[in-house]
Amino acid sequence: MGSSSALRELQRELETKTNDHSKIQKDISKNHQVRKKYTIQLGENELVLKELDLLSDDANVFKLIGPVLVKQDLAEARANVRKRIEYITAELKRLDATLQDMEEKQNSKKEAIFKIQQRIQSLQAGKAKA
């Protein structure tokens, strides 16, 4: 009877672990999506910066804020875009770090799940013999 209760406990443990694992996986996929978005934004910003750099100083530059175009200083616009690029790259780095962290967690969870499965199997085999 002791073995069966142990088995039940192990199964419960396995369940929680798999839940954690799937949660981490979900997080990772979310992270991937966010990352994708940021990379696209980074590419767009780089394009904008390139164009702004190519503009002559007397060109009129506007920013769309809500429904209206607001005239902006060219230098200011360039500074803004640069800052944005910096921010995005920093964000991408952070996302990379978290992604690595999550992957490590996922692997450890995977191992734990595997171990529990093995234990359950051995318990079941012992039971079958007995």
Binding site: E51, A59, Q72, V81
Partner: peptide, 8 residues
């Protein structure tokens, strides 16, 4: 140009 920036 992108990101809400326009240029004449």
């Amino acid at each position: 140009l992108g990101e809400g920036y326009y240029a004449e």
